[in-house]
Amino acid sequence: MSEQPRIPRPPHPYSGKLIIVEGIDGSGKSTQLLLLHKWLESKGHRVFFTEWNSSELVKDTTKRGKKNKSLTPTTFSLLHATDFASRLYHEILPPLKAGMIVLADRYMYTAFARDVARGVSPEWIRKLYSFAITPDMAFYFKVPIEVAVSRLLGGTRGQFKYYEAGMDMNLSPDVTESFRIFQSNILAQYEKIVDEFQLITIDATKDIESQQNNMRLLVGEALKDYKPRRGTHGRRTVFWRRFEEPKSE
């Protein structure tokens, strides 16, 4: 991979805000995003949520490919890019253009970390996602591999899934060991990405409340100049109390 400094991508031109979270499985990023979602809504914001690998277009195909273990690193990567493109077009851009807040659980950085750990070219994957817009805020939940493993095994998740554990790469016949090796490779990729794309690192070993407080502080700061879509007429300080925004369904 070239070590040349990359030209930073320009911010998106839309009036809404895009906030995304990244991290390996078991880092607690989804919990944190859910709590942020609650907080933003309690402040009267209209918030949209979108999740990695959830579009109607390819969800079933990905599921089928995973089930019969026929996905190669390239098709795995392209299917997720298709999912992302479809969600960007249908779920992310419209609310952003309308001036609303969009929260995304995983973004293109997941592909940069995971697909490269699986063996695709780092240059190729970045070009593939060149149509993506730059988020306003990107949080990376940093956690040591052992903490993630014990959270997942101790939780409701049970056994690791085939692709999640990187079993397609023949790293180890033992699924937990394979998960450990594969996710450690992903962590190493994330470390590079944090620098390259200036992600905000959150120490995900801390307790849930203090991580969330930290996050709310940073988001609150970033939204200081954000004008919610409905008319402000110069009275921004009391805006949130003046309007009752409909709750997200």
Binding site: V58, T75, L78, T82, S86, Y89
Partner: peptide, 14 residues
């Protein structure tokens, strides 16, 4: 959309 249009075919090709 344009991107998923091309990406679907790229996945098929891959």
């Amino acid at each position: 959309d344009r991107w998923s249009f091309s990406l679907l075919y790229a996945t098929d090709f891959a």
